[in-house]
Amino acid sequence: MRDQIHPGKFRFGVVPPAGPEPGVSRADPGAIFDELDKVPLRAGGTMALDRFPLAQDTEEIIQLCGVDGCVTMTNDESRVACRLSWDAKALPSLLLWISNRGRTYNPWNGRNLCQGGEPVASTFELGCRPSLAANPINAREVPTAISLDPDQPVEIAYRFEVMTQ
């Protein structure tokens, strides 16, 4: 089985300051990149995070910033594509969660292969304080928070589609 992620256009990608699984995550903490198939590694070189499963066991989170508001995941075997589109003015980044047999403890036992995409206005999954403070994402003019006003509701449109190829 081969899956591929097509993230649409983005201005830059960034690796969080610490991986989701210490000692297992391979991406270079804090690295900035321009292509999903060339994410810098801690040990040097790059890793392609656009096709799954990966050859190496790992757990990764990366953030694509300044996105166009569309991501498509395709499965070569089933010939099914899932597309998520959203209002990128409200949620200008896409967090990609990648689990590729990197968690060897229960209940995963080194068998979990999954990927997820989460539209966000945040600094990784680090919460409110880092997202409201100066950080490497908003320093590059990509908002990491949404202003809320109880008198002006915020609506974020999104669409999820499943298609056969």
Rank of each mutant, 00 (worst) to 15 (best):
A134W: 06
I32M: 00
T144A: 02
G110M: 05
D37V: 11
N75Y: 08
L54D: 04
W108N: 10
L91M: 12
D37A: 11
Q4A: 15
I146P: 03
K38W: 01
T144M: 05
P136Q: 06
N135F: 01
Q63T: 05
N109E: 12
Q56M: 12
A81I: 03
R11M: 04
P130G: 02
D57W: 10
I62W: 00
N112Q: 15
I5E: 00
T58G: 05
D28F: 04
L41H: 11
Q63V: 03
L49E: 03
P107S: 03
D76L: 14
E21H: 13
L95D: 05
R111H: 12
I32E: 01
A81D: 04
T46W: 02
R103G: 03
V71L: 10
R51H: 10
S131K: 01
G127S: 05
M163G: 10
W97G: 06
L132D: 12
A145W: 07
V67L: 00
P143D: 04
L94P: 02
F33M: 03
I98K: 01
V162N: 10
P153N: 08
R83C: 12
A81S: 06
D76W: 12
G66P: 02
T74H: 09
P17Q: 10
D76P: 08
L41P: 02
W86Q: 09
G19F: 03
I137C: 00
D151K: 11
A134V: 12
E141H: 11
P29C: 15
I137G: 00
Q56V: 15
L49D: 05
L84C: 07
K89Y: 11
A81P: 00
G23K: 06
L113R: 08
A145S: 15
D151V: 13
F124V: 00
S147E: 13
A133V: 11
M1V: 04
A48Y: 01
L91S: 08
R26I: 09
A133D: 14
G44I: 02
Q4H: 15
M47I: 08
A157E: 13
A121L: 06
P7G: 13
Y158E: 11
D37Q: 13
G69C: 09
G110L: 07
R140A: 05
H6Q: 15
